[in-house]
Design a protein around this nucleic acid. Structure first.
Lengths: 218, 218
DNA sequence: TCATCATTAATCAACTTTGACCAAGTTCGC
DNA sequence: GCGAACTTGGTCAAAGTTGATTAATGATGA
């Protein structure tokens, strides 16, 4: 899945140098299993595959006591290029209400306000098209079950649900474009600033368990 | 993916005896690639796996002229049991706004009005719980980036989007439960009736191409 | 009439996902 | 102070997905 690759690339980019278990814990704390369908096994596979493809590089393999060895990764230049390509692809391209957009949205502060707002307005347009298509399907449907344009009632109920979801998504995109332009969502320099200041974030990961839950006390 | 299995089981159940290409065309005409993420290759794999697992049985392999041979399937009793298990599991179990529920919803006329309405009210309950959790996350979030309950603004924007989607889903579930009880969505005898009368539906499939599009003229 | 393209019904290799499992160490309840 | 349960950091085989490809035929069009 491309969502897995994007999540891993994005996180290694923030946290590098970083080992697999930390990436795992951070992603689990985001709840990606719930809203993006990414499971633990996929993350280790993804790290290896990205390393084999040259998007990540292995910095070292650490051994602490007799614990399992940690593999520490960093991003390559090619990886950074691929991250940007993938991010744009998912943000600009996916109209449907799928996890793809939400996953890519996690890394939206990488974009300038200008680009982010443009992307959201483009998305609103795509969604309006999708809305129109759904509406068309609902409107000129036949009532004769033998005709090809006939739709069973429970199917039209599903289409109505999808229609409402699409409307929500259109509104949110338009509103959020405005909020970004007003500077409400993130600082434009956020990308570099947060990458430099990611240290206390990294400390936070140490207080997560393998399911991404916060631990009571150290 | 379980969605793939459920879709195939459901369709073979309606249309049996049926060959893979007809299942493919029907599913593509439903647009499952768009809203359920099921691609052509997965369908043939699914048919084979289900046959290997004993949920489907191969009736015969047809050869028309020199065309590729068609493998014709029917459902076994075990397959029917698994279909019912899977259908209930996906309808009663999945709270999140995922394709799982929508896929299972395709076969809701298999259930009695009573069970369908109960299922939808149960779902509304699960969704209200999810709504509460999202809200809690949004409310007691800290504003200090070094604290573990801090959420960046673009993440809270995503949560707000998810909240609205959840609300839509709650409303739709409640409304649709009422509509089903009023007998608006399907006849209670629909399952057997339509299975017997599936013949003109089967004819309709012959006018679809491999992408599920209706062809202009025969 | 000949080249080109779509249709039909599938197969296949490459890739990805999944979740059970491992093995040493640590913490917890009682 | 003992066994149960969890943590750590990962591996692995089995399963699932993907989309390019096949090979014969029918339709289209210049």
């Amino acid at each position: 899945m491309w969502t897995t690759r994007l999540l891993i690339l994005g996180l290694v980019r923030w946290l590098q140098p970083v080992h697999g278990y930390d990436v795992l814990r951070e992603l689990m704390s985001w709840g990606v299993a719930d809203w993006a369908g990414v499971q633990r096994g996929s993350i280790y596979h993804g790290l290896k595959k990205l390393a084999a493809d040259g998007d990540l590089a292995v910095v070292k393999v650490e051994q602490v006591d007799n614990r399992p060895a940690r593999t520490v990764y960093r991003m390559t230049e090619a990886g950074d290029r691929h991250f940007h390509t993938l991010l744009r692809e998912k943000l600009w391209g996916s109209a449907a209400t799928s996890p793809d957009f939400l996953v890519a949205w996690s890394f939206v502060p990488v974009l300038s306000h200008r680009e982010a707002a443009a992307m959201l307005r483009n998305r609103a347009g795509l969604l309006r098209d999708a809305y129109g298509e759904l509406q068309a399907k609902l409107e000129h449907r036949g009532s004769d079950p033998t005709e090809p344009d006939f739709l069973p009632a429970h199917v039209t109920a599903r289409l109505q649900l999808m229609l409402r979801h699409t409307q929500i998504e259109i509104d949110w995109s338009a509103e959020t474009a405005k909020r970004i332009e007003a500077g409400e969502l993130y600082d434009e320099s956020d990308d570099r600033r947060t990458r430099d200041g990611a240290s206390h974030w990294r400390d936070g990961i140490q207080r997560l368990d393998a399911h991404g839950r916060h631990r009571p006390k150290p």
